[in-house]
């Protein structure tokens, strides 16, 4: 995998267009996104990006790796916010911004006091339309997750706990080339599947009950996200079959509706209507239809009724309708999807 400065360049073009001469980036995801490097934790590195240069404030221990992999970063051996301010002053930046939604209160207050300007949400905005490199990495992460599913189903056995099944699945992704997890795997057996954010437990798998798995891996810093629900055993209940068919149909419907220029809330609202028209089931669909993903697992635009954004070609979203019957079972079906000019492309395949 080749490290790339293309996201810094994209930011510099945007800064110039908007007549800014620099910006500070301090949140881990923003830093990893622009630098294209995978720093381990919040506070491991910060960026000050001007129209010509990208300064990376970080610890000495990263220097060997950074010099080799990211020659487009100018390293500064400090992690003090004050030093970012000093750098901006020495460069005589006049119109330097920080993202108010992706900067901590302490750092933001210091920046503001020293003449940096507030700007809400520009990092999220710049992440929305994916480049070819980003699409290729997400596609690879998605393909690893998708291939892991079949192998997992063959190896899953009655008597395994949710935690054991999770290890099994995660090991398969690792051996297929996954570089860590996109988020904590959700593995829900039986009635636990009715909780969309179930915490994995020692509950053992029995014959003839549903299994819901929601998981993803990373590749080159980018996430994948997929959910499948299936019946473990020979005779799925009629109730399960009926709900499964509806969820899958809702997924297919949303896939058709998620098109460039469509409001991001439209597929969600249509799925709600679809569930309502088929047995008044809307109240069992208790979350948003999906979200975008990239270096973070949840990115804007969100596919829920509260969003006022418009879908565009180059967005990578999830489509994940579900129905949850408390105390009984739940079903969710999710793919990661690239919005194309003419046709959407399911990446989790």
């Amino acid at each position: 995998m080749k490290f790339t400065a293309e996201k810094i360049k994209k930011l510099q073009v945007w800064l110039k267009q908007n007549r800014f001469d620099g910006c500070a980036v301090t949140d881990l995801d923003g830093v990893n996104f622009f630098s294209d490097f995978c720093f381990a934790g919040q506070g491991d590195a910060y960026l000050l990006i001007t129209l010509k240069k990208a300064y990376c404030f970080t610890k000495k221990m990263y220097a060997v790796d950074l010099k080799k992999k990211t020659p487009y970063l100018t390293l500064v051996d400090s992690l003090y916010f004050e030093d970012i301010v000093k750098k901006a002053q020495s460069l005589k930046l006049k119109n330097c911004i920080f993202d108010t939604t992706a900067t901590g209160y302490i750092a933001g207050t210091l920046f503001y006091k020293n003449g940096f300007k507030e700007y809400a949400g520009f990092i999220g905005k710049l992440k929305e339309i994916k480049t070819e490199t980003e699409i290729a990495r997400i596609k690879k992460a998605c393909s690893i997750s998708f291939r892991a599913y079949d192998i997992f189903r063959k190896k899953l056995k009655a008597g395994m706990t949710e935690l054991e099944a999770t290890s099994l699945l995660e090991n398969i992704m690792q051996s297929l080339g996954g570089e860590g997890l996109a988020f904590n795997t959700i593995m829900a057996f039986g009635e636990n599947s009715a909780n969309p954010h179930h915490i994995n437990s020692n509950r053992k798998l029995k014959q003839n009950e549903p299994v819901l798995l929601d998981y993803g891996c990373r590749y080159g810093g980018y996430c994948s996200d997929i959910t499948r629900t299936f019946w473990f055993g020979k005779k799925p209940s009629g109730e399960f079959n009926k709900a499964y068919a509806l969820v899958k149909a809702a997924h297919d419907l949303a896939l058709k509706l998620a098109k460039p220029s469509a409001p991001a809330c439209l597929p969600h609202n249509c799925v709600c209507d679809f569930f309502e028209d088929n047995g008044k089931l809307k109240k069992y669909f208790i979350h948003g239809l999906g979200h975008s993903l990239g270096t973070a697992i949840h990115e804007p635009p969100f596919m829920n009724p509260r969003t006022d954004e418009i879908l565009k070609a180059g967005h990578i979203i999830t489509i994940e309708p579900g129905l949850y019957f408390e105390g009984k079972f739940g079903i969710r079906y999710e793919d990661t999807v690239l919005i194309g000019e003419d046709k959407n492309k399911i990446l989790t395949k």
Partner: peptide
Amino acid sequence: GFDGLKESYHAGK
């Protein structure tokens, strides 16, 4: 109270 290192600038304000 709230922790200024843990809240976003937006929420902290």
